[in-house]
Design a protein around this nucleic acid. Structure first.
Lengths: 260, 260
DNA sequence: GAAAGTGTTTGCGTGATGTGAAAAAACAGA
DNA sequence: TCTGTTTTTTCACATCACGCAAACACTTTC
């Protein structure tokens, strides 16, 4: 066969790992023949793979039914992976590329005790002059970054700050021109943001600047961090703009995806 | 040499899985040659295995350093394996209610090769510790979570880490003010914890924070998981405090109750 | 800036080894 | 005890993984 040999290393290993993935997609114990059908492989082939997986502890075989299931070795492996996987550092690694592609400044924030806090900063080629830097905390309602946390982070730790900003907004209406400073107004705003996939503001936090922000989600579906693009061109916040799509795609690649 | 056939199925798969195991034992990113030395295999062989693992997403290669580390696919696999555990599922489902009732952050951990690993996290309004989150591993002696495992998990898998932390404690006494870093000191600590029904520390792991932790026990009376409450009020660790009783009751309701 | 050193990746021929079909064994229901 | 189903083992063959060594990338040294 003169077909394309894809980048993988060992054919048998690739096949075996496909079997493993098929097992992890299934919700519970699987019989050998079901697995073989899922993977479109001969039964005996799958059986031999499983024998090795069982030996390694990744898979266990249920006593009487003969069905196979993921075992304690898989848990140990996963915990080891979980322990060293750090969303923040992974995101930080890709920040320069994102900033370059979008031709905007990119920054990475996490939720700290005093609000959304900037922890990484990547300048664009044409630096936008701002007074922000590492450690800056952003407001919840008037910044794209804050709004992304509002839409995707668990509500409880945000609640105090949300109440505070709502009180301030009620006393000074022009601060929040694009939504009503009430519970229903907030809900509508959150829905709008989640539907669009990212939050955006133009000139709200800093006049003359526009920003869009999207979340990096963990396996609980909560925002672990928020990535924000800052620039001067109002067109970049339009739905369908290239920058918005780059940002969402970037964050999606860092987020935890339950399956394919 | 067709004499001795071990229980496994495929030789190459067995070898490849030994490589995977070696990776999960290491604490962080590993270079190719280190891995090869660990497994006593030729470098090129390990490299090809890794190529397949990378293709499957189980392993990633760090940008420019060339080192390899466990990747998101391993997380997915591990979470799928954890999801098969009914104890963990039921505990996770009840976590939000517990956190709300106790007005503290609640987290769920299970034991991995590198210590107690946080798998689920439910935040309360009280401040979130910035450096902790999903995937954090907790020390055995200085955290309430670790101590709960120490008191209720089978000793064998903990022994290595216990020895390690004891050595460290002996060199730095202030780390463990409330017990002697000796075998009898540990025994006394364990007895105290078991008697009280939950483990607690105040400011040991993180200054200014208090925590209480209780186990979810399986039919053998061994800890399958540990539920921890974290807050700032020292009164919550007092014997008889409402939070402690809620926590113990919650864990007891999850323990020892398979459907059939 | 060239040269040497370390570590990773890739070709290649060979023979061990994984493959598929089919037989054998275990199991369940009738 | 006999069928239908699913798991396990057998076996001859051609493939595919192995190890060597050369190529390549990157860092350090003079």
């Amino acid at each position: 066969m003169a077909e394309r040999r894809e980048g993988g290393g060992l054919q048998s290993l690739d096949a075996a790992l496909r079997v493993l993935r098929a097992m992890s997609i299934r919700a519970g114990p699987v019989s050998l023949s079901e697995l073989a059908r899922d993977c479109a492989m001969p039964v005996s082939k799958v059986h031999r793979y499983l024998a090795s997986f069982v030996l390694a502890g990744l898979v266990t075989q249920e006593g009487r039914s003969g069905k196979y299931d993921l075992g304690p070795g898989a848990i140990r492996l996963g915990l080891a992976a979980i322990a060293r996987n750090d969303f923040v550092n992974r995101a930080a690694d890709g920040l320069p590329e994102l900033a370059q592609k979008a031709e905007m400044s990119a920054l990475l924030s996490i939720w700290g005790d005093h609000g959304a806090t900037v922890v990484r900063w990547e300048r664009a080629r044409t630096p936008t002059v701002t007074s922000m830097g590492l450690g800056t905390t952003m407001p919840l309602l008037n910044s794209a970054t804050g709004r992304a946390f509002l839409a995707w982070a668990p509500r409880a730790p945000l609640q105090d700050m949300l109440d505070l900003e709502l009180r301030r907004a009620r006393g000074n209406r022009p601060l929040t021109p694009d939504f009503a400073p009430t519970r229903t107004g907030i809900d509508a705003l959150v829905n709008r943001i989640r539907e669009q996939g990212f939050a955006s503001v133009h000139g709200l936090f800093i006049p003359g600047l526009v920003a869009l922000a999207a979340p990096v989600l963990d396996w609980q579906g909560e925002a672990q961090a928020v990535v924000t693009l800052i620039g001067t061109d109002p067109d970049t916040t339009r739905a369908g703009a290239a920058q918005g799509r780059s940002l969402v795609e970037f964050c999606r690649s860092l987020s935890f995806a339950p399956e394919d």
